[in-house]
Design a protein around this nucleic acid. Structure first.
Lengths: 144, 144
DNA sequence: CCCTTAATTTGAATCATTCAAAATAAGGGC
DNA sequence: GCCCTTATTTTGAATGATTCAAATTAAGGG
């Protein structure tokens, strides 16, 4: 009963966050669980069978709610659509392929969170740091 | 003759990069020189008097050319329009206010370029790292 | 089981950005 | 200094991600 288990888990997470447990939200949460980085359209394509009558706008609504509740994290690669991941709460960063847009996780570069401490802060109260490494993934490096 | 001086400087930079020296390009380069972070629309508004008959698309064209020639750097804050800065060639990063979108420069967090070395690279050949600190600027911190 | 309110559906609009064809201007060669 | 080639800009329109708003539906406490 892995499916039921997953669903239960997602429902629990939603309740804990003070959000109503709905089919679209559970489905999105489950789809992001394997650890990928999907955008709204990809999620919509994957879930439209499972969620009859859903729409892309509904997916956007779900993603906004989940992001605000901190259940998913929104990653916005330069010049592309926003991607979403279920891995939250840690300080991991990203590798972005400038050719194919592939996105991979990497643990924080050096130690715990050194990048969270800039040398000057211009009066900002800093809440988080986002690090993106740009380059070519293995596939694109050999191809081009 | 500071204006002429600036113009000459911009022309030289363009020539050095193998780009034709045109009025729109010199104007954009000059406008970015003071060190700000402007988006295409802001540049268009500032330069439309100076450049009669120009258009927003022309500004986009100029910015794309200058970015590809590495004369300006494109910064793409999450959920906003692309901003451009003339400061290139160093490894500085950015502070982004989540409330008003204000963008400030910061030197690299620790030492020379520690953030350029992730612990795992998933086979990527890494070319650059982009660090963005998110938080509230002094104005927004006191207001809200 | 009902009621209140949150969430989704449906349809349309907005915004940044890009595409494509026609007109123009840069700058090397004569 | 003028012409020619080609890059650049102009002009007009299209694309794609995302958001807005009103109407409908469903969650879950009482």
């Amino acid at each position: 009963m892995p499916i039921t288990h997953h669903a239960t888990e997602s429902a629990a997470r939603l309740n804990a966050a003070g959000l109503r447990s709905t089919a679209p939200r559970r489905a999105v949460l489950d789809a992001l669980q394997p650890g990928g980085h999907l955008d709204a359209s990809e999620l919509y394509e994957r879930l439209r069978n499972e969620l009859p009558g859903t729409s892309l706008q509904a997916i956007y609504g779900v993603l906004t709610a989940l992001t605000e509740a901190n259940l998913v994290r929104r990653v916005t690669p330069a010049g592309g659509s926003a991607r979403y991941e279920a891995r939250v709460g840690d300080n991991h960063h990203h590798l972005l392929c400038r050719s194919c847009g592939r996105l991979e996780d990497v643990p924080c570069a050096v130690g715990a969170a050194p990048c969270l401490t800039p040398s000057t802060d211009h009066g900002f109260s800093i809440e988080s740091a986002e690090v993106t490494f740009h380059g070519l993934c293995s596939d694109c490096a050999t191809t081009g």
